[in-house]
Simulated scan of single mutants.
Amino acid sequence: MPHILENATLKGYNTFGIDVSARWLSSFGSQEELTALLRDFSNRPLLILGGGSNILFTRDVDGLVLRNEIKGIEVVREDGHYVYVRAGAGENWHVFVQHALQRNWAGLENLSLIPGSVGAAPMQNIGAYGVEIKEVFYELSAYHLDEHKVYTFSLNDCAFGYRESVFKRRYKGQFVILDVTFRLSKVPKLHTEYGAIREELDKMGIEKPTIQAVSEAVIRIRQSKLPDPAQIGNAGSFFKNPTVPAGEFARLRDAFPGIVGYPVDGGVKLAAGWLIEQCGWKGYRKGDAGCHARQALVLVNYGQAGGREIYDLSEEILQSVKARFGVELEREVNIIG
């Protein structure tokens, strides 16, 4: 049975570095350990915690917090084109990406250096630089908390959308992801057209990039734009990029000629960071809560900010963007409070 701590701090288990406590704190490294913990703490409020990189605590947790530490990476099968790789939900995401790159398995290179765990990746269909998890996802195993049964979810079952899946809406709080299987390519199809990847590759002097070179370019770009959570508490992008109808974008472009938008299915996706910056928030700081100086999408904890302070700042940002542009932003970070 895993060790159980009482009234334990969660400061080291969330990348914002918010100092809240859990009534009970433990971890599980297998389905059997999870089952035992759930049996001993039946009818108690429960929170499953992965890497803690997409969460904001605004209060103490009066219940059981369980850290998912299921590990393991294995090839389950392969064919002439693909390798099917299963990873435990508790594996560090970037470590898993590097594991794949070292073996020339392609598809994850644009998702390098994203904080968090493997199990959290499909929950919100993580994406970066033109690639989303759904493009390399094959299936996952998830444990139903009430039925105590394991279900397999296919690509269609997960209903992936922009930073969305069935685990964030329809099945929120009902399942614990145990492992995820990815379909990685033996023949790379590089995505270098998004953002500054091509420019960064040119700076690196690379004319014919490999998946390893694309990964390195992505890492350099992320490090130049985003603060390291080990240095400044943050959860990466705090807000989603909103999508508006094409007609609404035309109106906004007339009123704000510099507005940034990209055509997508259903309309035009706006750059939330641009909207926030235009409202004067970039580099803003009040106490130890602030908006990062290099990337307006990132809210930060400079040291001793409470979760409520950061949440209140996000609310002010939402309201100011709505007032100026008529656009409603949505938080990407999960709020516990």
Rank of each mutant, 00 (worst) to 15 (best):
E6Y: 15
N7S: 14
G12Y: 12
N14G: 10
F16E: 00
G17T: 12
I18F: 07
D19A: 10
V20M: 06
A22V: 07
R23D: 09
L25R: 11
F28H: 13
G29P: 09
Q31Y: 10
E32H: 11
T35C: 11
T35H: 13
A36H: 12
L38R: 11
R39S: 14
D40L: 13
R44I: 12
L46E: 05
G50R: 09
I55K: 07
L56P: 00
F57M: 06
T58R: 10
V61W: 15
G63T: 13
L66Y: 13
N68L: 08
E74W: 10
D79C: 02
D79I: 04
H81T: 08
Y82A: 04
V83A: 05
R86P: 09
A87P: 11
G88P: 03
A89G: 07
N92A: 14
H94Q: 06
H99P: 02
Q102M: 15
A106S: 03
L111G: 04
L113I: 04
L113T: 03
I114D: 01
G116S: 11
G119W: 06
N125V: 03
N125R: 02
G127D: 01
Y129I: 00
G130N: 03
V136K: 00
S141H: 15
A142K: 05
E147N: 10
Y151C: 05
T152A: 04
T152I: 10
F153G: 01
N156V: 13
N156A: 12
C158Y: 05
R170E: 15
Y171W: 14
G173M: 12
F175C: 12
F175K: 03
I177H: 13
T181K: 05
T181A: 05
F182I: 08
F182M: 12
K186T: 04
V187P: 03
K189H: 14
K189A: 14
G195N: 11
E199A: 15
D202A: 15
M204P: 08
G205N: 13
G205Q: 13
G205P: 11
G205L: 09
I206R: 10
E207A: 15
K208H: 14
V214C: 05
V214F: 09
E216M: 12
E216G: 11
R222I: 07
Q223E: 14
P227G: 04
A235V: 10
S237N: 04
K240A: 00
F249M: 08
L252R: 04
R253D: 04
D254W: 09
F256W: 06
G258V: 06
G258W: 07
V260M: 04
Y262S: 05
K269D: 01
L270Y: 01
L270M: 03
L275R: 01
I276Q: 01
G283M: 06
R285W: 03
K286V: 07
G287M: 09
D288A: 08
G290S: 06
C291A: 11
C291P: 00
H292Q: 08
H292R: 05
A293E: 15
A293Q: 14
G306D: 03
E315F: 06
S320D: 07
S320H: 02
V327C: 01
E328S: 04
L329W: 00
E330Q: 05
E332L: 00
